[in-house]
Design a protein around this nucleic acid. Structure first.
Lengths: 203, 203
DNA sequence: TTTTTTTAATGAACACCGTTCAGTGAATAA
DNA sequence: TTATTCACTGAACGGTGTTCATTAAAAAAA
């Protein structure tokens, strides 16, 4: 009986359709500027249909954020092995910034947006977030083992590093780089990361 | 004829009342979770009354953000004179973080929130923002004159520094430090700034 | 003082929002 | 062929930002 399987597949496809439609509409907009009615209209379905696949708007956002965390963790985990721990840390920074700039909707939901996300994140989401954070902390610990950042606490250093990359990308994502020429943005972000990496050498 | 003056004063007081009531309600909430009706109710006025003092919700937020920029610039400008430019830069960082943490509603509106703010900021707002940014860039330039950051572009360095402090405070303000103990937050932020300041020495 | 004019404040209304639910028609099962 | 399940929807409810005719009080004019 392949009917059940087909139905399950169709259900997943519908969820995907909703999520991708929402993602597209979210680009550069606030989550409250994208309405369930908008999403439904873009999909050519009735608004009520969305509620058959997601309990409410929050759960839709949770699902998106969760997808973001999955992708994020995958990229973080894919960190190429490298002898030099400091070089690994730098590579993590590049991966982080690249993820944020190529998935601004995800990044916003994951690390900037407030509201729905706040209180109860999914267990899986929290897990993935913690795992990613753990990768960072571990690489920092390796740096310390290899003689960098001597006398520093890995947790504190990783928070500092994380703050920096977060600052860079959230300026860009939340559109606070208007005093610079748009075509310069990429170069500025690249330069900022370069300088930060340079400074890391002598912490 | 003192009546006109009194009316003008009362009008300003009403604006103040609206702004302070809104600020109080905004603490820790999204701007869309605070409704005009909420604000009006807290003030014990009709919602329509607010519209006699502010064109719409956006303009109310503009006014709030503008007040934030004024306060921000005042604190930035009050930077105590100091011989060592690098020490001045570090003091700017402390001022920045202190402003953000003691005025989270302002900071959110000024540098994180999206939506109303985006397109047309007030002239005064833009002016104050640019002036503040100019102070930072100038101090960085002084650093370079004094031999620090040699070969670097002041604009690029100040963007890097700014990104870092922004990252630190926006993590805190947007509540993404939950994996750390709340009582540790302050120390972590302090440590992060210390380490960053330390790293600055050898850029 | 009495009348007129100005003006601050409001209640009711409009369109939109998230969300629910009884109902409908088609796909599946009997 | 009939019964049942099920994806889907239109209409409704209370909330939102916002507008506007109306009101009552304050100020100005008589």
């Amino acid at each position: 009986m392949g009917i059940a399987e087909r139905k399950e597949r169709e259900k997943q496809e519908m969820r995907e359709l909703i999520l991708s439609t929402a993602t597209a509409l979210f680009l550069g907009k606030n989550y409250d500027q994208v309405s369930m009615r908008n999403i439904a209209e873009a999909m050519e379905y009735s608004p009520a249909t969305i509620y058959l696949y997601f309990k409410d708007k929050n759960e839709l956002l949770y699902a998106l954020s969760e997808a973001g965390f999955r992708k994020f963790f995958a990229e973080f985990q894919g960190l190429p092995p490298q002898q030099n721990a400091l070089e690994r840390l730098r590579e993590l920074g590049r991966i982080y910034i690249n993820f944020a700039l190529t998935n601004p909707v995800y990044y916003d939901l994951m690390f900037i947006m407030r509201g729905p996300m706040e209180s109860h994140r999914t267990d899986e989401e929290w897990e993935l977030g913690m795992s990613s954070h753990h990768i960072l902390t571990q690489v920092v610990a390796q740096c310390i083992e290899q003689g960098y950042f001597s006398g520093k606490d890995p947790d504190r250093v990783s928070f500092m590093v994380w703050s920096f990359v977060h600052g860079v990308v959230s300026f860009k994502i939340r559109d606070r780089m208007k005093m610079y020429e748009p075509e310069e943005h990429e170069a500025m972000i690249h330069d900022a990361l370069s300088m930060f990496n340079e400074m890391l050498t002598c912490l």
